[in-house]
Design a binder for these strands. Structure first.
Lengths: 139, 139
DNA sequence: GTAGATGCAAATTGTTTGCAAGAGA
DNA sequence: TCTCTTGCAAACAATTTGCATCTAC
């Protein structure tokens, strides 16, 4: 993603363009493994060794509040984040903590039963599958 | 549920029948609000004032390991539990933390795409909807 | 009698916050 | 300049663990 486009994106969201924010967001968009805050921190530190873990937490929280990043549900106590804003579903391995994406037609926002609309305002909907992945099964 | 049936259920799961375990499980089966460990504790203490919070945590963990109780994903850091073992889906209010059930035909285990079976062993699948409930919206 | 369960207290872990200094718009 | 960010350290909150005692089986 172009730097200029990012500056615009941040500005639209009311966020200043800082190097730390830039690096965290870039790491999130590039990540395929739904990293934890600490994992993001480890990665970002390679480009900015002085960045603190709290900044990563704060940055992820503000990106989440703007919908630029999502918190993946269903894992352990440790929060995991997703930089892919497009709607998709998740497979969570209860053993190794690995998280993978999958797609499933017929399980989007439009397919929810009407009672859901009556419940309130929906922010996102996803199918969450929990189990044990192939590798942890020893296959 | 009959005490004898419960004793049998616990025995089948390799769990001793203790008063604490009995009360925690009963509280879970009766609860409609997907309580947190601390909420369960508060309720159970009315019948057993001496029960400790760690026992509630340990009991919920062992019930979960046997599939008698589920951890509801998607809320805050605080774990919420579900004593309803039948498959169903969840609506999570990000504001008040309230959790409600809903049903959705076409979103059961049998409806998952084949790639999910290739991923590993599935323990459970559910649709998770996050948003803000009617009451928190002020309606 | 023995393995598993409980209570207590202390420890752990992930995450948040107050504050002063620093940097973007 | 003025507000938003950051780093540091301390605070927090939920959950787990070690250990000695107790209890179901």
């Amino acid at each position: 993603m172009q730097i200029d486009a990012l500056k615009k994106l941040f500005a639209q969201s009311g966020l200043k363009f800082t190097n730390q924010r830039y690096l965290v967001y870039k790491a999130m968009v590039e990540a395929r493994d739904h990293p934890s805050a600490e994992t993001v921190w480890r990665r970002v530190r390679e480009s900015a060794p002085a960045i603190s873990l709290d900044t990563v937490y704060r940055t992820l929280a503000s990106l989440e509040a703007r919908g630029l990043v999502t918190r993946v549900p269903g894992g352990s106590e440790e929060s995991r984040f997703d930089g892919d804003a497009s709607p998709h579903h998740h497979l969570v391995c209860l053993q190794c903590g690995g998280i993978e994406d999958f797609v499933m037609p017929g399980a989007g926002l439009a397919d929810l039963p009407p009672e859901v609309a009556a419940w309130g305002r929906v922010r996102d909907a996803q199918v969450l599958v929990r189990g044990v992945c192939r590798r942890c099964l020893g296959l």
